[in-house]
């Protein structure tokens, strides 16, 4: 069950769950409470709707990874959820179904918002792309690929979003260190004639900044 899933990272003392607040959240919004939509999804997709989670008046529907495109199309075409507000990945760092992708859909006419989630295993980090249904998912899926390494099947242009293509890691995965992997991103040359630097923390390793009067003249400036 989603609520009881133990997440392996505990940096600080654990505060016990305060589930009593779920129903009376002062910030709960009407828009996110969508039992009708959940029922419609369950009626239509049956087994593909894995579980439903409710906290602070927000419905989250877990759907099967393979049927997410159909679910999105159904929501868009029949329940008027025409706007994709957000899409992102989550690294749960669990053994099975390590990654999650969530979709945040908005219906302007019905004034409703719903969140879908799919689970993606680590062994095969591939999710179907919903760009045929929501074109807005394009960049979000690219970002998800960049940050988590989840590939999106059928995405028209799956490049990295933020990091350069020359970077090999997926930084929002839990095992990626906050300070980065030394040598994974080169620094520019220190002088026009020098080579690239592979060390991202050069100063920490004793490199002194070059004073401008010591610097070799730049050929480029004369050209």
């Amino acid at each position: 069950m989603a609520t009881g899933r133990s997440l392996p990272f505990h940096f600080t003392p654990v505060d016990g769950p305060r589930q009593t607040e779920a129903g009376t959240n002062p910030h709960a919004k009407d828009t996110t409470f969508v039992p009708d939509t959940v029922e419609a999804l369950q009626g239509r997709f049956g087994g593909a709707v894995l579980e439903v989670f409710l906290y602070a008046g927000e419905h989250t529907v877990y759907v099967d990874r393979s049927s997410v495109v159909d679910v999105c199309r159904f929501l868009k075409e029949e329940l008027s959820y025409e706007y994709l507000a957000d899409l992102g990945g989550i690294d749960l760092f669990t053994d099975e179904d390590r990654f999650e992708v969530f979709y945040n859909l908005v219906s302007f006419s019905a004034k409703k918002r719903i969140r879908l989630k799919i689970r993606v295993p680590e062994a095969e980090p591939v999710a179907p792309s919903i760009t045929p249904v929501f074109a807005a998912a394009n960049w979000n899926e690219r970002e998800c690929w960049d940050m988590f390494g989840i590939r999106f099947d059928g995405h028209p242009d799956l490049r990295r979003m933020y990091m350069p293509e020359d970077f090999e890691y997926h930084p929002l995965r839990k095992e990626f260190p906050l300070l980065g992997v030394p040598g994974s991103l080169p620094l520019p040359p220190q002088a026009p004639e020098a080579g690239l630097t592979l060390d991202p923390f050069a100063a920490a390793h004793g490199s002194k900044p070059v004073k401008s009067f010591q610097e070799a003249r730049s050929d480029l400036a004369d050209q």
Partner: peptide, 16 residues
């Protein structure tokens, strides 16, 4: 400052 507020375990929410 050290620990701060701890929302319940295993929940998620979105606010815009």
């Amino acid at each position: 400052t050290d620990t701060g507020v701890c929302p319940p375990r295993g929940i998620w929410s979105y606010h815009a």
